[in-house]
Design a binder for these strands. Structure first.
Lengths: 298, 298
DNA sequence: CCATATTTCTGACTTTAGTCAGGTAATATT
DNA sequence: AATATTACCTGACTAAAGTCAGAAATATGG
């Protein structure tokens, strides 16, 4: 990887932790240690469960428990067993706790304001735009792609979202049972793969590979959640599927797609897929693509 | 201030501390507490003085001293009195210390690489560009403008840089003694002001105001260091000078400038200064500007 | 109902990070 | 030469942050 690029990233990290981290440490200004301030803030105006706090802050349960006990002693929070699972405790702010929370919130707001305040209007806008851009790509870089069980609930939820989107975008609506089938059972090794793109654990995209024998394979179920579009996730999914296909001896990869999915068609064209005559009678397919010679490129 | 803008800044802060801050705490992965890792890293391959470390990290001298003692016990560093001032101690890494340092450096590099690695080429470039932009504007927002003593060394150094730049940019060269004079003594209240723009304490720009009586004032010595140009520092300096002028009863502000300083002329035009006939015989001036009615706008 | 897993709590710890009040040696100032 | 200042060190202290090993209550799958 380019050395200059790396040092630019490192410089950014330093600059940001210097300017923001410094100010961020000033949660402190609240007269509360950082740990407590973070916890209190994380409880939020509407409360949460201890479980959730532990996950979000990544802290030891004993540590959290003790801080919560201290908050209760101060009259900032109350806790009750969760309605659905009495092992789980639900933490809520008391009115007094909410006042403290508001103060922290205000502090955080002031901090942000202090950053923008010295800048002129156009500089502010440019900073905000650049921030949004950085944020998007940091998000993109946190997306991981990994195989998943096509029978699992989370994959089903992902497919559900996919089908719903197709139904919304196709003029004709979309009925999965009329489409070219891809049973979950076909998408597990050795006859196929199902890949999931995850952001912080949550599914934000998927793609499947069906190995058909005689060197043929087919790409199915390519979908990326709207929240992470334009960040190259589909590209990465496609590449990952191609790698699995190549490793499984596939030489010719095919796929079908609808005319309304213009981004998808561009993606395939960019990756060396050429349009071919229909190879199936999927009523929703309007374009068929093929990429040959995967084994040669191995 | 716009509420939406504030929440965008806060979102960015959260995202960055989440994605980078988390990893940054992983200096930790070194098996060393954060404080020690930071100190070791800050010593650098070529060593520094304890004094410098204290200033850069903002830590208590006792704290640093103890950590350094621990490093010495581990055989990571050695320290010797500084050649020029024997009170100052110079800390250097031993070969073993340098190995640890290299490891930390490598870790930091890997971290940066892990961030870029999942992205495609164009996404990488866009992320790096956005990072640079954010960094620039964070720097801009850290610039503070405040009155300074025009006799002080740092102001003299600033003016020196200013004159040097004029000499380089003017076809004719530049000799301060031939220019329209502005003695330091004229630039202290009540007859004037000298403002300095500072970034982390260091001077990065200046501007002066000369109050001439009868409602007349003159802007002098406007200069911004190349490192922070295009970030609105000159604009802020100008506004600050105008405020002082207005408060001092000035109604008409004048200034002269050279034709080669195009950015300066744009700045003045944008701020309501109109070109007027020469009001002095400064041999380096080619354009004269004036803004009237400061008291009206008060 | 039983065996097992989850979730939280408690108490007893350790480590990390930092502060503060002197003390010593070298340097600067008058 | 006397005095003040600077740079660093030492030792004694504290608060914050975090870890670990159970215990108790509840849930879950058979």
């Amino acid at each position: 990887m380019d050395d200059d690029q790396l040092s630019r990233v490192r410089r950014f990290n330093r600059a940001v932790t210097h300017r923001i981290g410094v100010l961020d440490g000033n949660y402190l200004g609240s007269g509360r240690p950082l740990g407590e301030a973070r916890l209190l803030f994380e409880i939020g105006r509407d409360g949460t469960t201890v479980r959730d706090l532990r996950a979000r802050l990544g802290l030891d349960s004993g540590y959290i428990s003790r801080m919560l006990r201290a908050f209760e002693a101060e009259g900032l929070t109350t806790s009750t067993p969760d309605a659905r699972d009495a092992r789980v405790r639900r933490v809520t702010l008391t009115p007094q706790g909410r006042r403290e929370w508001d103060m922290l919130d205000q502090r955080s707001r002031d901090r942000a304001a202090a950053l923008l305040e010295p800048l002129g209007l156009s500089q502010r806008q440019r900073l905000l735009d650049a921030m949004a851009e950085v944020e998007r790509f940091l998000r993109a870089s946190a997306v991981v792609i990994e195989p998943a069980d096509p029978f699992s609930d989370e994959v089903q939820a992902c497919l559900q979202a996919y089908f719903q989107e197709l139904a919304a975008r196709f003029d004709t609506g979309f009925d999965p049972t009329r489409s070219a089938p891809a049973e979950p059972g076909e998408l597990v090794p050795p006859s196929g793969w199902f890949l999931l793109a995850r952001l912080d654990g949550a599914a934000v995209g998927c793609g499947a590979l069906k190995i058909k024998g005689d060197g043929y394979g087919e790409i199915k179920r390519m979908w990326v959640a709207p929240s992470v579009r334009g960040l190259g996730v589909a590209q990465r999914l496609l590449r990952a599927l191609e790698e699995r296909a190549t490793a499984a001896g596939v030489d010719i990869l095919q796929l079908d797609t609808n005319g309304s999915l213009t981004e998808a068609r561009k993606l395939y064209a960019r990756n060396g897929y050429g349009e071919i005559p229909p190879y199936n009678d999927n009523p929703y397919a309007q374009h068929w693509f093929e990429k040959r010679g995967l084994q040669r490129l191995r």
